[in-house]
Computed example of a mutant assay.
Amino acid sequence: MKRFLAGIGLTFAALTATAALADNPQFQGADPHAVYIGNELWVFPTGGPGGSWAADRFGAFSSTDRKHWKSRGELIRRDSIKWIGDDGAREHFLWAPGVATRGRKWYLYYSVGPQNPTPSRIGVAVASRPEGPYIDSGRPLLTGGNGFEAIDPMTFVDRKSGKAYMYAGGSAGSTLRVFELTPDMVGIAREVKVAQPPKFTEGAFMHESNGIYYLSYSHGRFNGPDYSVHYAMGRSPLGPWRYRGEILSSDQRHKGPGHHSFVRDPKTGAWLIVYHRWENPVGGAPYQGERQVAIDRIRYAKDGTIVPVRMTD
C-alpha cells in the first residue's frame, strides 16, 4: 500500500528511450496520473510541488514545457466526502487519485484509508472541469475486505467498445480486480474476472497503442529497492495478457520507481511514462522522506514490446 509518507552495448532504441525530456525530477509527489489536456500536461498526484501534500485533499498541476508547473488548486477535500466516517475509523487518508473524462464531465477516483481495522474504500467525484471542484457521488464506489484492498483505482475508457473499466487493488492481497462501470461512470455494472498477472503488487494502469492493450503495474514494496514497473500485453483491455517483463527498476541513484501512468504527447506523438521514485535515499530500506515525480520517454520495439527505460536526470 502507498503509505502516507511514499553505454556500451545499448541498442539505438534503448539509447532513444533514455533521452532526457526535461530536468528530472519534476516535483515532489507520488502516484502521478498524467493526462494531456490540449497541449498541456496535467498531473494528478498524491502530494505535489513544495511539499503541499496533506492527506485530506487532492490537487492538480499542469505544464506546457515539463519544466515549470502551475498549481490548479484543490480538487476535493476530505471533509466534503460525507460518507468517509461511516466506517467508524478515527482517522482517514486520501491517496492515489486517477481521472477519466466522458461526455464533457470529469471523474476523480481515489483511495480512502486506513486499511485496518476498517477496510479501505474507493470513492468517485464528478466535475465539469478537470480542475474541479469535484462533487463526491455520495457513496463508496468499492469497499475492500476478505483479503482484498480497495486501492489504486485507474479507469480506462475503451475507444473500440465505448465501455469504461476500473482497475483496482493490490498491496497486501496483491489482487487485481477489474470492473465495468455504469454509463454515468459513478457505479459498477459488473465485475470482470481476470487472471492475476505475474509480479503484480499494485498501481495498475491500462493504455492502448497500435491496437495492443498494455496492462502495467508496480511490483514490490513501495519504500524498498525492489519496487519496479512490469507489464503484460493483450488484444483486449480485459486480457488475456502475456507477461513481457520489467520496464522500470532501481539503479544506483534512483530507487523504487513505480505507481506510474502512460501518456502520449500530442505535439510529437511520443509516449511518456510519468512515475515516482526516491532520489538517492540515505540509508537502506524502508526509505524515508518524500518521493519525486519524474518523466521519461517510452519506446516500442517492432513487435510492440516496450524497451526498458533508463531513468534520467
Rank of each mutant, 00 (worst) to 15 (best):
R221L: 10
A195C: 03
P197E: 05
M206S: 04
G203H: 02
Q196L: 09
A204W: 01
P197Q: 06
K199T: 05
A195I: 09
N210Y: 00
K199E: 11
K199C: 04
S209M: 02
M206Q: 11
I212Q: 05
M206Y: 02
V194L: 12
Y217Q: 05
V194Y: 13
S216I: 05
G211K: 08
P198I: 07
Y214D: 04
G220C: 06
N210P: 01
T201Q: 10
F205T: 11
H207G: 00
R221V: 06
G211H: 03
H219K: 14
E202P: 08
K199A: 06
M206W: 01
N223E: 07
E208D: 03
G211D: 06
S218V: 02
G203I: 00
A195V: 10
N223I: 03
H207M: 03
S216D: 09
F200G: 05
G220L: 11
H219C: 09
K193G: 04
E202W: 08
P197M: 10
A195L: 15
G211W: 03
S209Y: 01
Y217A: 04
M206A: 05
H207K: 01
S216G: 07
S218G: 09
Y214P: 11
A195Y: 08
S218R: 08
H219V: 00
N223P: 00
E208A: 12
Y217C: 02
V194W: 11
P225V: 13
R221Y: 14
P197N: 08
N223A: 13
G220N: 11
Y217H: 04
V194C: 08
H207A: 12
I212L: 13
S209F: 01
P198C: 02
P197S: 08
G203S: 12
F222V: 09
E202T: 01
G203L: 01
S216R: 10
A204T: 02
S216M: 13
E208Y: 00
D226R: 10
H207R: 04
Y217L: 01
G203W: 01
Y214T: 13
G211V: 04
G220H: 12
F222G: 08
N210D: 08
V194G: 04
F205L: 02
Y214A: 06
P198R: 13
G203Q: 03
F200W: 07
S209K: 14
P198N: 07
G203D: 05
S218H: 07
K199Y: 13
L215H: 09
F200R: 04
Y217V: 02
L215W: 09
E208P: 03
P225T: 14
